[in-house]
């Protein structure tokens, strides 16, 4: 069996890319990586350490045109004879994998959280409230792996990087401009997240949340009403109708823990809840709970972290 892993290397090699290659390796057989983007050969060849035996790079596309990327992956699959294509379930995968599924007549399993068990693959459904086991009926398959579902594993050696012409065709989407996201750490990829809700009373009180996030090296998030009333930018809204995240640590202060909020964060490995109301539903989903006033607890936690960092 031959596996093809697609990676977007426009903003360097993300951890999710290393996860996707590790996943490909665990499927068994030879793993080839096909990539578009601007990462240099040295960075790309390091993917060999995660199990890739070859990198094929097509540098002809500079934008995120899903049709062009689909064409490149389809020709790479043909060249390598791959019957499985692996993506990390990120923004590029959401735009490209469905197109590729139709192009290759390959069943698409999106949001995979584990390696296949027999002929089924486990995915998250119902916004993380359940898991489903999906079976692919077609001969070829595409698996889009939810970030943070497995740890990248090294053990291989650097591998060769070859220029590849995937016959991308013309772009049909004309890019006029790209706005960089605010904040240093994009929320969907963050491993540590500090989040706050209506309990904080007003936008002027977010300074302490940001200070805690900076101390931790975490991204910031918020509940939906907080984004809706404009206290925080929309891209920070997590939950059923916002961004779904699966960080290692999610700290929620002044958030009640409504079911729609939980739907976007219940994949977090560890949840810490800070709330004045001991009856707040969020405590049922938490690993560590603090019944207390966020205005006192957050600064205290920031101080404790400073102390911890100084002594370690």
């Amino acid at each position: 069996m031959s596996v093809l892993v697609y990676i977007n290397s426009n903003s360097g090699i993300a951890k999710s890319a290393m996860e996707a290659v590790t996943y490909g390796k665990k499927l068994g057989g030879e793993v080839t990586v096909v990539t578009t983007g601007s990462a240099d050969d040295t960075a790309l060849s390091a993917l060999g350490e995660y199990g890739a035996s070859k990198i094929m790079v097509d540098r002809s596309v500079t934008s995120e045109d899903p049709q062009q990327i689909t064409s490149i992956i389809a020709s790479a699959a043909e060249t390598t004879g791959a019957t499985t294509v692996v993506f990390s379930h990120d923004l590029t995968a959401k735009a490209v994998a469905p197109r590729l599924s139709v192009r290759m007549k390959a069943g698409l399993v999106s949001g995979a959280i584990d390696i296949p068990q027999g002929d089924t693959i486990k995915v998250n459904v119902f916004s993380g409230k359940a898991m489903g086991l999906v079976k692919v009926a077609s001969e070829k398959r595409i698996i889009s792996l939810l970030p943070n579902s497995l740890q990248p594993e090294t053990g291989g050696d650097k591998c060769s990087v070859e220029e590849f012409n995937g016959n991308a065709g013309d772009a049909r989407i004309k890019v006029l401009d790209t706005k960089k996201p605010e904040g240093d750490i994009p929320l969907p990829e963050a491993e540590l997240v500090v989040s706050a809700g209506r309990g904080l009373k007003g936008p002027e009180n977010w300074g302490m949340v940001e200070a805690l996030a900076v101390e931790l090296g975490a991204a910031t998030a918020c509940s939906r009403p907080v984004a809706d009333i404009g206290w925080r930018p929309h891209h920070e809204h997590v939950g059923q109708t916002g961004v779904a995240i699966r960080p290692n640590l999610y700290i929620a202060a002044g958030i009640s823990g409504a079911i729609q909020h939980l739907a976007g964060v219940n994949g977090s490995k560890v949840i810490v809840v800070i709330n004045t109301d001991e009856e707040a539903p969020f405590f049922k989903a938490a690993d560590y709970g603090i019944v207390g006033d966020a205005f006192e607890v957050i600064p205290r936690l920031t101080e404790a972290l400073k102390k911890f960092k100084a002594s370690n």
């Binding site: 007549k105 069943g107 459904v125 898991m131 086991l133 079976k135 692919v136 560590y288 709970g289 603090i290």
Partner: peptide, 23 residues
């Protein structure tokens, strides 16, 4: 012809009790 089918479903393991910490 569909390309995939959901064979079965599972519910996540229940969370173990939340550890309370002195504020």
């Amino acid at each position: 012809q569909a390309l995939t089918t959901f064979e079965s479903y599972e519910l996540p393991d229940a969370k173990s009790a939340c550890k309370m910490i002195d504020p």
